[in-house]
Nucleic acid binder design. Structure first.
Length: 424
RNA sequence: GGAGAAAUGGCAGAGUGGUCGAUUGCGGCAGUCUUGAAAACUGUUGAACCGCGAGGUUCCGGGGGUUCGAAUCCCUCUUUCUCCGCCA
């Protein structure tokens, strides 16, 4: 959520940036926010004054009672009834005005960084980095959903039997490859200075709200109704919420955490080849990296994070490219996002395997995650996160790109983790 | 799941209706002393909103109520602890 102080102080800039994210009527919306804010301030002032008067009267009554002046006290009591009514009325007005503002503010997306390319869809994203060459496959090369069946390593039908579409069962070397990737990613992240976290994979409403899944994207998450808990769509949710309602010391920044969790996504409304095989699942594994950073340093941190993710892909010997997302393709909460895509040679398409974003204060404003600066004032920190990495599409690309007529070759870095170098 | 107790500032821990945003101790910060450090001593030290400022308002787990007035009384929810039961 955008900060009202930011909107007040940088009106034109906020409008300009919202337009970069294709928000319609940005200027009018901001004017409306400011109008409500002014109304809110006026109501609060009146309410505070009324309360101050009521407090003073109550004190007077107390003094009169003590000195035995009962009659005078009774007179004052009638005065407070009137004050109380006004107080109640103003409180209600304040609440409804605050709600009005809040309801409007939550509809506004984060303001993008000015380097974000303008645009409305994925075709406007800017390719900022490419690595590796697209592999040439042999004539009988198969897409990964056929390879997994051929080698009996991932069973989609069995998942349908147990749970439904989008819940594959990993078997034998397929399961071992999953475990290998998780361990490889966690070891790398730890070596890069991230502290490993094992969070809960169901979270409460407050947490869902803190990172922005609630109230809007409720349909994206599985909901455990009886306990009113949500299955996490990403480890970002619990790991970032660690810092909800926390005031950090400036010297603690940046805070680097990582964690492996299964992720659950309902993802209604997609069909066809986009969701075939491992391309899109309801449950998948992911290692996430999360940083809480100083506002002056968060863009350095973002570059650092995307270089880190690139290094993982390089080690896995996967051809990939880095996109800087355009205003129209970025997520609601992000100020700047890099997507990393690997090339899946049998499908002959790019698959998004990581998204690295700087949210600036958009999440921390909701989370109330602050640090104390050198002047002793509390300020919102910046939050960032990235996948490092999401497994299924990595597996898809590994299987497809490394297939030979004699089996699938495991990249060198994973062999110690797998305990085998080929899937036959 | 049953019975009981509790929830106060970074931590510990007072406060059972009227200058209590809250005694005190520890911790933190600043200073005095010291060649330096420690110790000792002195001061300072929660958050949010409104206001140019003076200052005002709100917050003692969450929500609601009683009262002129609530950290203090009542209701309710949540969490923690102790005992019993069950159990990976």
């Amino acid at each position: 959520m955008l900060q009202i102080t930011t909107i007040r102080e940088n009106k034109e800039d906020v409008v300009k940036r919202l337009e970069l994210k294709n928000v319609k009527n940005a200027a009018a919306l901001i004017e409306q926010v400011l109008e409500i804010d002014n109304r809110r301030k006026a109501i609060q002032k009146q309410g505070d004054d009324t309360k101050a008067e009521a407090n003073a009267t109550a004190r007077q009554i107390g003094d009169l009672m003590k000195s035995g002046q009962k009659a005078e006290a009774e007179v004052l009591k009638t005065k407070t009834t009137e004050l109380k009514n006004r107080e109640k009325e103003l409180d209600e007005q304040l609440q409804s005005t605050e709600k009005e503002m809040h309801d409007l503010l939550v509809t506004l997306p984060n303001t993008p960084h000015l380097s974000v390319p303008p645009g409305t869809s994925a075709t406007d994203n800017a390719v900022v980095f490419e690595h590796g060459s697209i592999p040439k496959l042999h004539d009988k090369a198969l897409p990964h959903w056929e390879l997994t069946a051929k080698y009996d390593i991932i069973d989609f039908e069995l998942g349908v039997k147990l749970s439904g579409a989008g819940f594959p069962v990993y078997k034998g070397k397929g399961a071992r490859l999953q475990r290998a990737l998780i361990n490889f990613f966690l070891d790398k992240a730890t070596a890069a200075g991230y502290r490993e976290i094992q969070p809960p994979i169901v979270v409460n409403e407050d947490s869902g709200y803190g990172t922005g899944q609630l109230p809007d994207k409720e349909g994206q998450m599985y909901h455990v109704g009886v306990d009113n808990l949500y299955l996490i769509p990403t480890a970002e949710v619990p790991i970032t919420n660690i810092y909800r309602d926390v005031i950090l010391k400036e010297e603690e920044l940046p805070i680097k955490n990582c964690g492996y969790t299964p992720c659950f996504r309902r993802e209604a409304g997609s069909y066809g080849k986009d969701v075939r095989g491992l391309n899109r699942l309801h449950q998948f594994d992911k290692v996430e990296i999360v940083q809480i950073a100083h506002p002056d340093k968060s863009y350095e941190v973002l570059e650092d994070m995307r270089n880190y993710v690139a290094s993982l892909l390089t080690e896995l010997e996967l051809p990939f490219r880095t996109l800087k997302l355009c205003g129209g393709d970025m997520s609601f909460a992000s100020a700047l996002t890099y997507d990393m895509e690997v090339y899946s040679a049998a499908q002959q398409r790019w698959l998004e395997v990581s998204s690295v974003s700087n949210f600036e204060t958009f999440q921390t404003n909701r989370l109330k995650c602050r640090y104390r600066n050198d002047k002793g004032k509390t300020q919102l920190a910046h939050s960032l996160n990235g996948s490092a990495l999401a497994l299924p599409r990595i597996v898809a690309a590994l299987l497809e790109n490394n297939q030979t007529e004699n089996g699938i070759r495991i990249p060198k870095v994973l062999v110690p983790y797998c305990g085998f170098d080929t899937i036959q």
